[in-house]
Design a protein around this nucleic acid. Sequence first.
RNA 1: GCUCCCUUAGCUCAACGGAUAGAGCAGCGGCCUUCUAAGCCGUUGGUUGGAGGUUCGAGUCCUCCAGGGAGCGCCA
Length: 550
Amino acid sequence: MLQFEAYLDQQLKTALKALNYPDIEYQFDRPKAEAHGDISVNLAMLLAKSLKQNPRQIAQQIVNALSLDSRQIAKVEIAGPGFINFFLAEAGLQARVPEILQGGENYGRFTLGESRPAMVEFVSANPTGPLTVGHGRGAVVGDTVANLLEWSGYKVTREYYFNDAGRQMRVLGDSVRLRYLELLGEKIDFPEDYYQGEYIKDIAAKVLQAHGSVLKESAETDIFKETAVREIFADINRTLESMNVRFDSYFNEMDLYRNGDIDRVIENLKKKNLAYEQDGALWFKASQFGLEKDRVIVKSSGEPTYRLPDIAYHIVKFQRQFEIMVDIFGADHIATYPDVLAGLRASGYDSSKVKVLIHQFVTLMEGTEKVKMSTRKANFVTLDELIAEAGGDVTRWFFLMRSMQSHLNFDLKLAKTHSEENPVYYNQYAHARICSILRNAEEKGIRCEGKTGLSASQFAPLREKSEFELIKKLLEFPKTVYKCALDYEPHLLPLYLSEVSTAFHKFYTECRVISEDEALTRARLGLCLAVKTVLGNGFRIVGVSAPERM
RNA sequence: GCUCCCUUAGCUCAACGGAUAGAGCAGCGGCCUUCUAAGCCGUUGGUUGGAGGUUCGAGUCCUCCAGGGAGCGCCA
């Protein structure tokens, strides 16, 4: 579609110039109704006001001024309040198929980022326990946004920020210690606000296995904490790996203290008179940056609040030269990021380079019953358990299907019982079907040409409606990737891919690929390969597998 | 009390400010001697939570109201 749009844009601009109309910004649209053509333009309606003319008349004048190549555009119509609708020529559509094949694994990529560095920071859960279903949504959204930025031409770093020090961690270590003592037969009183999960007992057992009972009387506590962090992190990474999520780097909050980044933030703010002492604490003048009130950054105990390291961390990101910094947060952090952005502005950085994406919560349903998710309570469904039930591909796809600002109901029961009828398999099945056809063709000795030796004329045998519909759908891929990336709306991709699959299944039902007609067979095999290309590329961005058989 | 998100078909959700609001699931009825039926076709289903406003045009933007969620800390 982009080729057609670029062509039309150029022609329309020429027409506007000839008519002495202002050169304004307008949109291309893919009309829903078939009768409205393949590409429509709202140009005339937008011009109506400044020209003080009837939009349909303006449209007519523009159309009259156009001289379009009939091999690209078959027909132009004016409709409704003043839309100009373009109908694509069959030859033009056929000619696009080899372009998809030539693009291959890179079809849909674009170069907007020009290899400039971007960072996506996500998950960033402290290693206190297994990831929750909520983390899963963040993980999938983050990884997919990262994939989209890569397809936009950015050089992307996926980073996991964590803190393995502080009160939270002391409680974790002590939780393990108590379970350890319990294993040694001691009667213990396990505090309510400690980590209740079974995994703590597993870690305690590991400590016992490695060190025996010598730690019973010892004052040593670090071993418990360190073992817990190591084990939990290993679990977290295993879980993420099962959803195809991998990180390029891990950033430990402690480094901000060791390297003096925290102190520098404080000094800088003080120097600029943007921080002051009150009640023994250090306050940041957030109110000078549009926020409701000032915020404490160092408690009277001398410990920083979470804001300070967060600000320092983002400054480090700037120093690492990232041009785009995306943060993925759950809705519970919604109130925290304005402080961080204000802190960045106060420190002299352009906070518009930081893009904060907030995803709403996942409500896990077991039938009609809500399952509450809290790390500290013993009763929760982990991301791991969800993946075990639904599978990595299904979990990924489901998390991505909905726009992130909408609450997601994930019905476990449905994921189990209807797993064969869910959209992931629908899409993967299309891919597997194509692979099967290609295998059959190969067995029959019909060679499907690869990237070379393809000419538009080879696709001239494609004449059926379902074939053209399929080609049109395939041609929307680059624009869809572009839009998903720029608007940070990954959910549009699964939606689009389902449309591709629908168009393919329809084509498959109506058109036999391998037939006696050799030219037609080869044209259709090429089309199948083009569908496989688009689905495969789409799956790669979404992060699900592209099965050859099902 | 204040801030952010949501409210669309029976259920879960889509829809760059565009034309007759769409999918999947659930329901009903069809289609396998031919490349994978995890598929296709048909059909039922709507006052887009309510009231105003902005404009050529509103599910989408603005104001108010109602309901649900998440926050509002010298916790993260």
